[in-house]
Simulated assay, not measured.
Amino acid sequence: MRLFRKPDSAASSDPVERMEALLEAPLRAETDRPYPPIPWRGRRIRGGGYASLMPTVDEFFGTSSQVCGGFWPFGTDMALPVEGVPVGRSLATGAGVCCDPISWFKAGIIKQPSMFLLGLPAIGKSTFVRRQVLGLSALGMNAIIPGDLKPDYASLVGMLGGQVIRLGAGIGVVNPLDPGDLHYALQRLDGKARKDLADYYNDTRCALMEVLLTIMRTGRESDADAGQRGVTARESDILSVAVRVLYERCGGDPQPPVVADLRDLLASGPREVREAAVYDDPGNDELYAAQVRGLLADLHGFANRMTKFGRLFGEQTTARIDLSRPVDFDISALAQSGDDVVAAVLATTWT
């Protein structure tokens, strides 16, 4: 049943008088038009009494003799899963929220252990990640921050007893041909295991060198001496063969090869590399020199300690990763070095 006021049909055209007549008119009922029930939260209209946030239950601490005499309302468990790092409270219910990709993956809540964090500037993204790193460290997991530009996490990693690796001109160098402990693991393997791991090493190092060369050449005019903008298919083949030949020659050395070794290998022109560069006439020195000229010039840019890339990639890695504790690559010294330098360092640390 719906109640309404029906004004007099002969009311004045003045809006004020019509409103007064409406308020003074008696209430009438329409029994054939039932009024819909009011939701338990109220209606989403003005004056409807809608409650967007429900009140939370007060929390308190006490001994069993103090607080176990009785509860009203009866205590119930929270609806959200209690899995992972505590990150805050639900805005709707006030219940605690626990979340991290590793714990949720182990509990079967999500299908893969990954998380994408998106938000406007200066609203707490880094703070949220720091809380995740701290909580996961307490759960026995070590975080690796491959590129800390501000830095946001160096102090936290240091507080946790982790390793902070600083990279920058005159500060720290990373060798793109250095696979880390993989170089020493290969020396202890043999047979198929060694071959499979060596293939993985060669493929990843070759892919990284292609990425670095592409970053160096992007946004630069192509010329005869410096190569093309991007790595061509033939240059990719030359790099792939050269990296494999370099590993066969230097795989047993105490230190992994550096970019200068790769440059010198191309300059010497071994038979395998010549066949990749000039398949129909590998003995032609002029054709081979023309094919590798741009590649040699750019590799020299990575090997020469006087260039902006050479100061970061031209020597052996200054600090090796210790995976038994948290690791942070502090690249804050590169903030003013240009996007290409930052991109090259990030590509190397991520690989």
Rank of each mutant, 00 (worst) to 15 (best):
E17S: 10
E17Y: 11
E17Q: 14
E17G: 10
E17R: 13
E20T: 07
A21F: 01
L22Q: 04
A25C: 04
P26F: 00
L27V: 13
R28A: 15
Y35E: 14
W40A: 02
G42Y: 04
G47D: 04
Y50F: 13
S52C: 05
L53F: 09
P55R: 09
T56H: 01
D58I: 13
F60Q: 14
G62T: 02
T63P: 08
S64H: 09
Q66L: 15
C68P: 00
C68I: 01
F71C: 11
P73E: 08
P73R: 05
M78R: 04
A79V: 15
L80W: 10
V82L: 06
G84A: 09
G84T: 02
V85Y: 04
A92R: 09
A92D: 10
T93K: 03
G94T: 06
A95M: 07
G96R: 12
V97N: 00
V97Q: 07
C99S: 14
C99Y: 15
C99W: 09
C99I: 12
S103R: 07
S103K: 10
K111V: 13
Q112D: 14
Q112H: 12
P113H: 00
L118A: 13
L118Q: 15
G119D: 10
G119K: 09
G124R: 01
T127F: 07
V129P: 03
